[in-house]
């Protein structure tokens, strides 16, 4: 299943989202390659993109961006911004 990283504008928003979605997400330090205002991000592999967006909006969670986690042939991880 595809992995997604969700970034936030503040730690409080990230913590709130983690509390509401904690059975479906993992709280991680924001990956180095992603610039974000907040050091915490959420990682999920339990939902596809529409489900993820639906759950974020259902819980009225504010987030900054969603990134799709992609691994290349050499095993390097890239984060592709979802627009």
């Amino acid at each position: 299943m595809t992995e997604y990283v969700i970034t936030f504008a503040s730690s409080h928003q990230a913590i709130k989202a983690n509390t509401r979605l904690h059975r479906f997400v993992e709280i991680i330090p924001t990956p180095r390659q992603i610039s974000s205002e907040c050091g915490f991000s959420l990682l999920t592999k339990k939902w596809d993109l529409p489900e993820l967006k639906e759950n974020l909006s259902k819980q009225q969670l504010q987030y900054a961006k969603i990134y799709i986690v992609k691994k290349d042939m050499e095993g390097n991880i890239n984060y592709e911004e979802n627009s």
């Binding site: 913590i15 993992e26 709280i27 991680i28 330090p29 915490f40």
Partner: peptide
């Protein structure tokens, strides 16, 4: 608690 979890993940 979140920092510890996040540290262990890292």
């Amino acid at each position: 608690a979140l920092l510890m979890k996040s540290f262990l993940y890292t």
